[in-house]
Structures are given as structure tokens and as C-alpha cells.
Design a protein around this nucleic acid. Sequence first.
DNA 1: AGATGTTTGTGAACGTGAGAAGAAGGATCG
DNA 2: CGATCCTTCTTCTCACGTTCACAAACATCT
Lengths: 215, 215
Amino acid sequence: MDEVSTPLVPEATVARLPVYLRGLVDLASDGVETVSSEQLAAVAGVNAENVRKDLSILGSYGKRGVGYEVDFLIEQIKRVLGAGDPVSVVIVGAGNLGRALAYYGGFASGGFPIKGLVDSSPEIIGQEVAGITVEPFEELKDVVQKNSCTLGIIATPAAAAQSVADQLINAGIYSILNFAPGLVTVPESVTLRKVDLATELHILAFHEQQRERNE
Amino acid sequence: MDEVSTPLVPEATVARLPVYLRGLVDLASDGVETVSSEQLAAVAGVNAENVRKDLSILGSYGKRGVGYEVDFLIEQIKRVLGAGDPVSVVIVGAGNLGRALAYYGGFASGGFPIKGLVDSSPEIIGQEVAGITVEPFEELKDVVQKNSCTLGIIATPAAAAQSVADQLINAGIYSILNFAPGLVTVPESVTLRKVDLATELHILAFHEQQRERNE
DNA sequence: AGATGTTTGTGAACGTGAGAAGAAGGATCG
DNA sequence: CGATCCTTCTTCTCACGTTCACAAACATCT
């Protein structure tokens, strides 16, 4: 019960661990067995001190004078991230974005198979997308339970986002990735992350303007 | 030359301004003329103190005892963000994701019209997508210059991302949004932002696991 | 076996951002 | 015209994250 399972991982570290993981998998497929913090920093695009501090939080898994064992480190990061076993995902909204996400093979190979796809439009329901049949939005709860989905993706227009989030929570999903612009409110017990493309473009435009100003 | 144009806007504020902007535009379309920091905080999903601090950085545009004038504030935020005039965007990669982005109407209405779409696959070149003809990747520089594109979006597989970024820079683009996973390196003079879907899912899975652990 | 070089791990300083509290300005009501 | 209330604006404090610096551990070479 008081096992030292994972002693408080900072949010900033959590955000970097997947990047390390991807780099490590790449290295492993190249046959690399041992990696230094310097090398890992290079493939992850951060500095070496940061890598060491992040990895030291998981535990002292490195050997001084040598580095980190790639395969072992992959397992440890997967364990901390909760990605040891595949995590099933349901996508709400089978429009252009929803379909693009479903077709993207990187999710399945990364341990996040898309297991459900629902939409409210009668013209789209029943279509086959990436090997999955689009189910009616009303069947969301059934789809989630039958496929043991634990992650939900909102790929609908902004107007529907809030009610979709509510229904996902109602279906037993507590981790949601939202692509729709605008505000979505969830209880504190639910993790909601947002991918806001318009905001990203605005931020780029800001820096672009700063650049032009300094010429 | 030493005009007090925009006195150092913190990065965290820059990331929130687009959210305020969207909320303000919504309010304006509802006929609201004046808004308090409390109201704006509600529609933006942050707390009021944060809103006030962010807005005070732009200038003292609020009236005490009253609030902020919606239309005026919209103009000011657009000015600071460099979104006064439309900013043309070029998308590299007309696969599922690139097409989904091109079809998404929110960009154009938000002041970011998609003006170019290029791909390297002969089967895709020449297709009409969202009213735009897909041009060959080799024509990137021409497309960028003819349409005065200043923002580039990478929507290609990971393997091509680095060389696409290089070509975008070569074509005169200094602001890039990258959807491809993996590391892309750019000179310091270029702004690169990354939308990493796999990382987002990993972060959600981490919190999901934390949740299960505390049960 | 000893010395040297390499790499991890950790403690301290620095900078940034968030939150709280108080001061100042403006409107409204009597 | 004065008092009260509301809202912005500013300053201070605190927490978080990053960077820097150094000590500890391991390997290698002589």
C-alpha cells in the first residue's frame, strides 16, 4: 500500500516523457542498446540536464559512466505513462478531422488503437472508416463499454463539443482530447486536454509580427 | 522608432489572447458591447485576475467600474497578435490530415485563409481540395510567393517533416506549425510550433493511470 | 591497482508565471 | 454634490520549472 510506485511526476516532465519514448523506440529499432543523456537530448530536442532530471524522477535507472539501457528505459517510461498495455480510444465525430484521425496509423502502433467511431449524421452512420463502422452517437455508451475505451476524442463542430463531453463522461470516459474550438467545462475528476489549431496559428502570427517589427 | 508599440508580451499571455479573442467575437455577435474581466474569464475558462493582468499588458484599455469595450478590445488584441489583416497559409501534405485542415472553414473565417496546398504524390497532385488545386511539392516556393503565404503547416509523414521544414524556410516561411511526430530542427530565427497527438494521448493515459491508482 | 576521463544524480540559483491583496478610478444613487 | 459600490490596475509573495554547478559512481587505460 505504501509502495513507492511513482513519487509525484511534474506535469512538465510528463509532457516530455512521450518524446523521450519515441526517441528511444527509434534508437532501439536502430539496434542501439545504451544511450547517454546527451544522445537522448539530441533526438528529443531538449538539453541533457533536463533529460537527466526527468529520468531521475522515475528512479535511478542510469549507470554512471555508461548511460541508460534503452530497452529497460522504454519499459519504465511506458510503465510510468500507463502505456504498458494498449489503451482503446473512441472518436466522436466522423467528419474530415475524425476520419483523418481514424486513418492515421500512428495511434494504433503507438499503443492507442481506435476502437470506436460515432457520429450524429445519418449520412455518415454505417460508413466504414479505417476498418471501423461508424455508429450512431446515441450508441456511444454501448460502444465505449463493448470496446473498453478509456480515452475519448472530440472531433465535432464547436457547438456540439460541450454536450459531447457530457455524454463521454456519462459513458464512463474520464480522459478527453478536444479538437473543437471554444470552451468546454468538465468536472475536476475529468482530464480534458485541448488542441486548438486557431490558437496555434494566432501564436505563430504574433511571432511573425514581432519578427517583422525588428527589421 | 522608440514608440511604445507592444512592450514585451509574456508567452503565456500570448497563448491566452486568442482564447479571449474568440470569446469576445462570440460576445460581440450576441450584441454585447461591454464586458467585465469576470464575464470574459467565464467564457475563456480562466480566472478573472489572469484576464486583467493579461489585458493590462496591452495597455490600460478598461474603464474602472465599467469593464472593457468589446469591439475596441477585439481590435487591440488583433493588433497585438498581428491578425489585423488576413494571414495566408500554405499546407504541405494533402493526405487525410492535410485535406481535413483545408476543409475546415474555421481558419478562413478566423483570418487564416488556406492559400496553397502542395503534395509530392502524383496521384494527389492536380486534385481539387476545398477549392484549391494541389500543386507539386517542387512548386512550393512559387506557391508561397504567388499567394504571399507567411505561415506553413506540415501535414506529412514524420520521415519527410525535416526536409519539408527546410524547404518551407527556403521558400521564405519563418512560422511553421508541425503536425508530424518526431524531431524537427530549425534555425533560431524561425518559429516552430508542434502539435503532437501521440504525446497528448500519452499525457491523458498518464492521468488515467493516476486516477485508477487512487481508487 | 591506481589514475583519468566520462556520465549520472542532486542541490542551488535564477527566471517566469500564477494568485492574493490593496490602491485608484469611475459610475450610480440618494 | 457627496457617499457608496463596482471594476480595473498594480505590487507583492509564492510556487514551479529550467539552468548551472558539483559531487558521486563507473569504466578504461596504463
